[in-house]
């Protein structure tokens, strides 16, 4: 269990910069916890306080009953050996082969040579790079390099894995592969993973719970499913909508175009959660209100760890009362409706 209490970090220099301000978080064992925010929000500084690369100016980071800022020298190094970390630019040693990169942390802890070798080979297999043991990082693709970095981070059997924008330098397909790998590691080895990212997609795909950071503060926190369903703060809504409809601007264009062509009608946004996303609610609505004409402007369904979330933009044409009744019907079916443009 990780307990962050009242943590702030102020960098003193020519100008004082408060990178992290009064952050309180609890992260449970075995969970994948996401911290999302734009660059400069303080998430990298926060995650560096987990393994003592930064020390909080005030407040405490407690990891499994150990207060990190109480540790110094040897104790701190031993604690760090029980935490893995992966980075945006992989940070592999280019002078070492894949195998030697993975044995690196084991050399630091003076594990015997044969044991190092065997362990590293097993981990390389886990991350799907069997056969590339003797390649150098420069001979690997970005996704492969990140796999090596993950294997390296797991070498000392960590209780915690910190991922600092680990997929930000990768293309979408490779990102998904690396995320799958993190999910597999979390499930098979029961390692707590903290994921720092600016991509909501990453959070949705693998995280159980999440926090949104803005200007050094945690502005929203909770289960990924809840936050996707009911984002409270403006910045969270921004993140969620970016993820829901990557072409949101396109949708607006489509709505404008539709409104121009058919000046009548109402545009509403429907949000389906979990089981409703699987039910034929719209066709049922059309059967009950046959006078309504319907245009689908845009739609998408996303899978989160807890279930699917669907979004649908509809243009409704027809009798005003009938449309209101239809909206009531949707409401009864527990589908959220939001009027984008009235009549």
């Amino acid at each position: 269990m990780i307990d962050i209490k009242g943590v702030s970090k102020v960098f003193k220099g020519k100008k004082e910069i408060t990178a992290v301000e009064d952050v309180n978080l609890q992260i449970n064992d075995g969970e994948i916890y996401g911290i999302v925010g734009y660059s400069g929000a303080g998430k990298s500084t926060l995650v560096r306080m987990f393994n003592g690369l930064e020390t909080p100016t005030t407040g405490t980071v407690t990891i499994n009953d150990t207060v990190m800022s109480d540790l110094h020298g040897k104790e701190l190094r031993e604690k760090r050996q029980k935490m893995g970390m992966i980075f945006q630019y992989f940070n592999l040693l280019w002078s070492r082969t894949v195998l030697q990169n993975v044995t690196f942390p084991l050399e630091l802890t003076h594990v015997a040579k044969e044991e190092r070798q065997a362990k590293a080979e097993k981990l390389i297999e886990t991350v799907g790079l069997k056969g590339r043991e003797n390649a150098y990082p420069s001979e690997l693709s970005g996704g492969q390099q990140q796999r090596v970095a993950i294997a390296r981070a797991l070498a000392n059997d960590p209780e915690l894995l910190l991922s600092d924008e680990a997929t930000s330098g990768l293309d979408p397909k490779t990102t998904d592969e690396v995320l799958e790998l993190l999910l597999k590691i979390n499930r098979e080895l029961n390692i707590t993973i903290i994921v720092i990212t600016h991509e909501m997609h990453v959070i949705r795909k693998i995280c159980d719970r999440m926090a949104v950071m803005d200007a050094g503060r945690v502005v929203e926190e909770g289960s990924v499913f809840d936050i996707f369903r009911h984002p409270q703060k403006e910045i969270t809504k921004q993140f969620v909508s970016e993820e829901e409809t990557p072409q949101l601007s396109d949708t607006n264009v489509v709505i404008k175009e539709l409104l121009k062509q058919v000046p009548t009608g109402k545009i509403i946004k429907l949000t389906f959660h979990g089981d409703q996303a699987k039910l034929p609610i719209i066709s049922e609505m059309l059967r009950q209100f046959p006078e309504i004409d319907l245009n689908i402007v845009d739609g998408s369904i996303h899978q989160t760890q807890e279930g699917s979330i669907g979004t649908l933009y509809l243009q409704l044409l027809g009798d005003g009362q009938e449309i209101v009744d239809a909206q009531d019907y949707l409401h009864k079916m527990r589908v959220e409706t939001e009027v984008i443009r009235g009549e």
């Binding site: 393994n51 690369l53 701190l76 190094r77 031993e78 604690k79 760090r80 050996q81 935490m83 893995g84 970390m85 980075f87 940070n91 690196f104 942390p105 630091l108 802890t109 390296r152 000392n156 910190l162």
Partner: peptide
């Protein structure tokens, strides 16, 4: 930094 994070 990576080496530091591994406790070197």
């Amino acid at each position: 930094e990576a080496a530091e994070s591994m406790g070197a």
